[in-house]
Deep mutational scan, measured.
Amino acid sequence: KELVLVLYDYQEKSPREVTVKKGDILTLLNSTNKDWWKVEVDDSQGFIPAAYLKKL
Rank of each mutant, 00 (worst) to 15 (best):
P15T: 10
D24V: 07
K1W: 10
F47S: 03
Y52R: 03
D24M: 15
V6G: 00
Y8N: 09
T19R: 08
Y8M: 13
E17L: 07
E12C: 15
K34C: 10
N33Y: 07
V20H: 03
D9S: 07
P15R: 07
N33R: 08
I48K: 00
P49R: 05
L53Q: 00
L3D: 02
L26H: 05
W37Q: 00
V20G: 03
P49F: 05
N30T: 07
K1G: 09
K54N: 05
R16Y: 13
T32H: 10
Y52N: 08
L5R: 06
F47N: 04
K21E: 04
K13M: 12
W37P: 00
T19A: 07
Q45P: 09
L56R: 01
L56G: 02
S44E: 12
L29Y: 03
T32Q: 12
L7F: 02
G23R: 02
L29F: 03
I48Y: 02
G23K: 01
Q11K: 13
D35S: 10
K1E: 10
V39Q: 00
L7K: 05
D9R: 03
V20T: 04
K55D: 04
W36F: 08
N33L: 08
D35K: 14
K55N: 06
D9M: 03
K38F: 15
K54M: 13
Y52P: 01
K55L: 13
V6W: 02
K21D: 02
L5P: 00
V18G: 04
E2C: 15
Q45C: 14
W37L: 01
K22M: 07
L26C: 13
E12P: 14
D35C: 14
D35H: 15
K13P: 05
S44H: 15
L7V: 07
K55F: 07
K22I: 04
N33K: 06
I25M: 05
T27D: 04
A51F: 12
E2S: 12
L26R: 01
K13V: 08
T32E: 14
E40Q: 14
E40Y: 07
Q45E: 13
S44Y: 14
E12Q: 15
E17M: 08
Y8H: 13
Y10R: 03
D43V: 07
N33I: 05
Y10K: 01
D24N: 08
L29Q: 03
D42S: 11
N30M: 08
L56Y: 07
V4E: 00
N30A: 09
V4H: 01
N33T: 06
K22L: 04
Q45A: 12
T19V: 06
V6P: 00
V41P: 00
E12F: 15
E17V: 06
K54A: 10
V20C: 08
K38N: 06
K21T: 08
K38L: 15
L29N: 02
D43L: 09
D43S: 13
Q45I: 14
I25C: 05
K54T: 09
L3Y: 14
D35R: 13
K13N: 09
K55I: 12
D43E: 11
V41L: 12
K13C: 11
V20S: 02
D35V: 14
K21A: 08
Y10H: 03
L26V: 11
E17G: 15
V41I: 12
K54H: 11
W36Q: 03
V20Q: 01
K38C: 15
K13S: 10
V18F: 14
L7R: 04
F47R: 03
